[in-house]
Design a binder for these strands. Structure first.
Lengths: 297, 297
DNA sequence: CCAGCGTTATCTCAAAAAAAGATAGTAGCT
DNA sequence: AGCTACTATCTTTTTTTGAGATAACGCTGG
């Protein structure tokens, strides 16, 4: 059974004429006859009354319902990829907790305004997990810390973050090695790239990674820091946005450790759905604008 | 876009291999490549990741949903016509009021027991209207009084009825011409074949069709006869079934007028859905059994 | 009842497409 | 680095499709 045959069949059913159906689909009457005949042979039943008025038989009417479902699904699939202007369908984004909290809200809002028909799904997790999700095709794109080693991926530097030490008390200098050793550190669960920085930081002070508590959410983590449980390391922007709420304090870290980039990663552009393509487009523009602003200031 | 290509695409998506997909659908790998490639060209997007593991891209996953809808609809359509054993779908039956009341209930019950997946739709109307519905394809088959003149139709004599005169008082002889002239007659609405018999009956008594009241339902009609409004003419079986309820009385009519056959009519068998085919089969058997019973007794 | 008109079925040929096999190229694995 | 298993490409054969010409059919009006 071919979709082409079903289209011809529907045209015959609607126009009540083989000639008219042929004209509508830009072909000749003999082809309509052949296609209908083939459908009839395939299903073992006469689909069209030829005697007198040309119209669908009972069997034909029954087929109409299924043909409509098939053709509608086909048309929708085509318009998903070939539809001009508005994208539709689904966009699954993976992002780190900190990116989700600070960077994503305005981006997603802008995207939703531009593409209201796209169903946005957001998954949060540490970098390593996000990379895994991306490679398994469980997300369409992701925001991760650090360049993806994988070749054949589209990578775009999205945001630059400055990591700061976060504690419950005001700090002017780095706490002593002993103080660090005595404190707990809060981090996202295994695979978080910020966690590596914490370990790097502790190592640079000659301290072995001591107690590291794992958290799944930013709020819980900051809450514990505020309660004096210990320290954490987070992007300055993320902490600033929550400073007042939690009553926490920050200290700049050495540049070598502090600077971290967030990248937008996705498979090759050739594999993108229109929804993803327009998201990447928007992001690219936003980043360029961002960089211009930085240059200007 | 071809359904065949979509099947191959789904097989690739499921098996994660072009070779396996080819094997599953009994073809060779090069054809799988060609079909997928054609799909990709048509939609302007890469559907399958070839590097490393073979798996659907984001765009491919989006297509999967539509492909499933198309292929499911296709499979259902095929099984509607080619499905062995149980028929499914819809069966639209047209029947006269009297047939519906007396003959159809046991038949429909038996059919529903045999084909529980068929959605039965019953339309009631006079013969002329039913013939019209049948010719317009608004019912799949019909029970009508009198042979259908139309050629290219499947016709089966389904039931033989004996018409009787129905009145509110016991009758031993035909009412006088004057009594008939003074009385009203109840009939179904225009197009009812029994109504023609009433007029024939009156004519044979030299009486012009006087007042004929039209009814849409059997119950209403018998109720009015019982109330002494006048006479009607109906199959004996139909009246007998309601005699006690209404307190009405019958009188045999002359054989020439009394005898009337109900036919099962439908388009050519080649146009039948499996649901209609099994209904006609059942009916045919039932009629044969009926005739054997009559012969035996 | 028959001729004329419009419609569908059939036939034919050329062109296009699909299927299958052979081969080359590529990625992952040891 | 070489082996293995996979996909892409190329080629040939076969099948299918599309379009035109023509025959057959069924209405309709005289």
């Amino acid at each position: 059974m071919q979709l082409k045959s079903l289209r011809l069949f529907m045209a015959v059913a609607e126009t009540g004429s083989f000639v008219a159906a042929a004209k509508r689909l830009h072909t000749v009457q003999s082809n309509v006859t052949t296609h209908i005949k083939k459908l009839e042979e395939e299903l073992g039943v006469q689909l069209i009354h030829r005697a007198g008025r040309v119209r669908p038989t009972s069997a034909g009417l029954a087929l109409v319902e299924y043909a409509e479902r098939m053709l509608t699904a086909h048309d929708e699939a085509v318009s998903l990829f070939k539809g001009q202007e508005k994208a539709c369908g689904r966009l699954r984004i993976g992002a780190m907790e900190t990116t989700t909290a600070l960077r994503l809200p305005p981006i997603l809002a802008a995207y939703h305004a531009a593409q209201p028909d796209v169903d946005i799904q957001l998954k949060t997790g540490p970098t390593a997990e996000l990379v895994e999700l991306l490679l398994n095709g469980q997300v369409d794109c992701a925001f991760v810390a650090g360049r993806l080693e994988h070749s054949r991926s589209h990578v775009l530097k999205a945001f630059s973050e400055e990591l700061v030490l976060v504690g419950s008390m005001p700090m002017t200098t780095m706490p002593s090695s002993q103080a660090l050793l005595a404190s707990a550190f809060m981090a996202f669960r295994q695979g978080c790239s910020y966690r590596q920085r914490i370990e790097l930081l502790l190592a640079s002070y000659g301290v072995n990674a001591g107690r590291i508590f794992e958290f799944g959410s930013l709020d819980a983590m900051l809450g514990c820091v505020a309660a004096g449980m210990g320290y954490t390391v987070l992007p300055r922007g993320t902490v600033d946005a929550h400073k007042h709420r939690f009553g926490i304090h920050t200290l700049a870290l050495p540049a070598s450790i502090a600077h971290i980039d967030t990248y937008f990663v996705a498979p090759e552009p050739a594999t993108w759905t229109p929804a993803l393509a327009s998201f990447a487009d928007m992001l690219c523009d936003a980043v360029v604008v961002d960089e211009l602003n930085l240059t200007a200031s």
